[in-house]
Nucleic acid binder design. Sequence first.
DNA 1: GAATATATGTCAGTGTTATTGACATAATAT
DNA 2: ATATTATGTCAATAACACTGACATATATTC
Lengths: 162, 162
Amino acid sequence: MQRKLPQSNLYLREEELRRGVELLYFAYRDFTSDPDEILAQSRFGRAHHRVLYFVGRNPGTTVSGLLSLLRITKQSLSRVLGQLVEEGYIQQDAGLEDRRQRLLHLTDKGKAFEKELFASQRDRVAEAYKRAGPEAVAGFWEVLLNIVDGDERDTVLRQIEK
Amino acid sequence: MQRKLPQSNLYLREEELRRGVELLYFAYRDFTSDPDEILAQSRFGRAHHRVLYFVGRNPGTTVSGLLSLLRITKQSLSRVLGQLVEEGYIQQDAGLEDRRQRLLHLTDKGKAFEKELFASQRDRVAEAYKRAGPEAVAGFWEVLLNIVDGDERDTVLRQIEK
DNA sequence: GAATATATGTCAGTGTTATTGACATAATAT
DNA sequence: ATATTATGTCAATAACACTGACATATATTC
């Protein structure tokens, strides 16, 4: 746990906080540029990537499951998901117990594309982990998890522990 | 430095990499939602926030300085910057040595607004730092810096050490 | 069985942020 | 004088998100 800082260290504290804000901005900017380059060659964008990614990680999830995980509207998802289904990246099956539901799965084509997109980020993150070392990586996870909304941490933990 | 993992740990490694990808996604999503809420009450968006932020951090920077830091096009910046100047958040002065340049500064109004926007993220990040502790924070910085493009790390370091 | 709720889909309109390409102006450098 | 640089601007386009309204099929409840 962090020791209480004396008041006189408020200036230093602000610098540390701005450092976090800025590193998050720059890291996220570069981290998303890898898949963006691949996506630019197709008619897909970042939103399609997110859907492919989370359907891949949660096979059999439903439309509303995706909606609450991604926190976008049904109309936004509908366009993106519709294109992915139409072009054969995602397969929809009627729910077994509740036939109103659409259970979502990646097709082989979808799996291959997701793998390619993930690989571009995997290499960057793996290299960063290697350079920073395992203890830094643990701190990286810890701080990021605490930046997530308090009432969403359980959802995120369930997701990353799959 | 990370020890070499045996081949049999490749599965674990992929889980660790996906954890980083997912935490970055969720943390960034919530981290940007704070200023977004404030911005939604004005006619400004996330792009305006970034310009306010980096002009505030680099008083006297030029248009091309901002362009290379933010990596957007002149046309995209032009619209956003123009609105901020017109509404009195940013002041432009002709360069002292090169009068073609526009040296950019926040006005008092701009400083106040930037402060309000930053406060919303500061509280979130400060709380996360406190919960995770100083060692985790150091790891958080280290990994994020290594996620940034190699050829941009110097630029980012110069920025965060201001 | 009828009424209500849920899961999903769809239509029309809007706004923000970004892009590219072309061209213009003013100031500096050669 | 000419070329280059820093900035600004116009027009067109695209991705991604939003709201509001309405439709359909299936489940649940009274």
